[in-house]
Nucleic acid binder design. Structure first.
Lengths: 224, 224
DNA sequence: TAAAACCTAAGTGCCAGCACCTATTTTATT
DNA sequence: AATAAAATAGGTGCTGGCACTTAGGTTTTA
């Protein structure tokens, strides 16, 4: 399945790291060309002159963050696959990089073998997340549910009608509109609204929306 | 790093699949015991009698969904690592299973080699997401950003101050409180508020909150 | 069968948010 | 130097949301 040779570009502001990686990779016979760049400008220059399959981006770079670099490179050369190499092990960084267009993400504390495997994987147009990264993602998913469970520990039981009205509130209908829609009095809507606030222990619509979000009572994204 | 032998439990309502997997794994010398169960009740029975390192759960089971099974097994035997084997390739299923406590997730269309690798990986207390699953996760992260970019294509440029005030609104402060906090007049806060509404093309606080959510201008989860 | 929860609804009054207007000072941007 | 954008702030008036109260009919549950 190994297609052709890989043209690699290493982008890092630390020349030492570039040299290190280069040394470790240059014996691999499926990696043809290894270019290097210390910043975005140099990287763009390289990419404009050579066809690069894989760019290894260290996102701890000072001036342009790795996210910026990734976005920019993807813009000018969408075929180039980007592998993020970083010491930032938080989810935000991972998701940001992937949103920016990275095909793979590995932590600096992983072995060089994995770097090589990652390069080959994303060169084949697959995705690569190192074990560590997978662990972070999994932990995050689990954590999210824990947060929800904790915050909703005192199980809020909104009635059918209350949920319905909460949904309409979230859809930006006024009490009057809700009343008309449901063929009930505005007074009744107000009563429901009050009960919803009481049950959810919230005081403002903003608070209520946050509550609804956290408890997945409404979803902001898919609607409308 | 291979610790000891692995005790495996295969849970699937299709006996054929159990037999198939069993046949393919019984030659592996690091897999000691292979038990089987066709449903949750049987699985619980097995787990109560034997120590199981890894449970391979097919979540397409009719009666109790794999999610239920996973939750239940994790409850009665937290040390047992769970590997989800499924034909459902959507994110919801993946996240649900992981939230329920699965340590790994693989699609049915992956090779048996990967199943074996996955079993060994999670037996070592690591996480395992197959390449396919990684692809789905990555695609999902990217897709999210696309949605955001589309809906916010007309790049909303809130000023520094406006962002600050938006943040305070999201923290449920009233105009008066915001005014006091920032040492400005309530009139000014109102003016900013109006400008924010205009710029974001929203009309109600609910709409504004949805906008802010989508554009990551505020984050509902981490705050407070 | 009684109690609890739910859905319904009217009255009354308060005020925060908002509309619409105007205007000065400061800070980019060209 | 000039134009634009942002931040500041006062006035005035309307109203939707909310508090607080009361109450009757229905459904669920203990």
């Amino acid at each position: 399945m190994q297609e052709s040779k890989i043209n690699l570009l290493i982008i890092d502001d630390h020349q030492l790291i570039i040299d290190g990686i280069k040394g470790l990779l240059q014996d691999e016979n499926d990696i043809d060309l290894i270019m290097e760049a210390n910043n975005l400008t140099q990287a763009i220059e390289v990419i404009n002159k050579n066809f690069i399959n894989v760019a290894l981006v260290d996102i701890s770079m000072p001036e342009n963050s790795g996210i910026e670099v990734t976005r920019k490179l993807k813009e000018i050369s969408p075929e180039t696959k980007i592998l993020a190499l970083t010491m930032h092990e938080d989810i935000q960084n991972i998701t940001d990089m992937i949103e920016a267009g990275a095909s793979g993400y590995i932590f600096k504390r992983t072995s060089m073998d994995e770097v090589l495997e990652a390069i080959r994987t994303i060169a084949r147009n697959e995705k690569y997340l190192s074990r560590n990264v997978q662990a972070v993602l999994v932990e995050n998913m689990r954590h999210k549910s824990e947060v929800i469970q904790n915050s909703a520990k005192e199980k809020v039981n909104l009635s059918e009608r209350e949920r319905e009205i909460l949904g309409l509130i979230a859809k930006e209908f006024s009490n009057e509109e809700i009343a008309n829609r449901l063929f009930i009095s505005e007074r009744t809507v107000e009563a429901h609204r009050r009960n919803i606030f009481t049950k959810t222990k919230t005081k403002t619509i903003v608070g209520l929306m946050k509550f609804a979000m956290k408890n997945n009572l409404i979803d902001f994204n898919n609607e409308f």
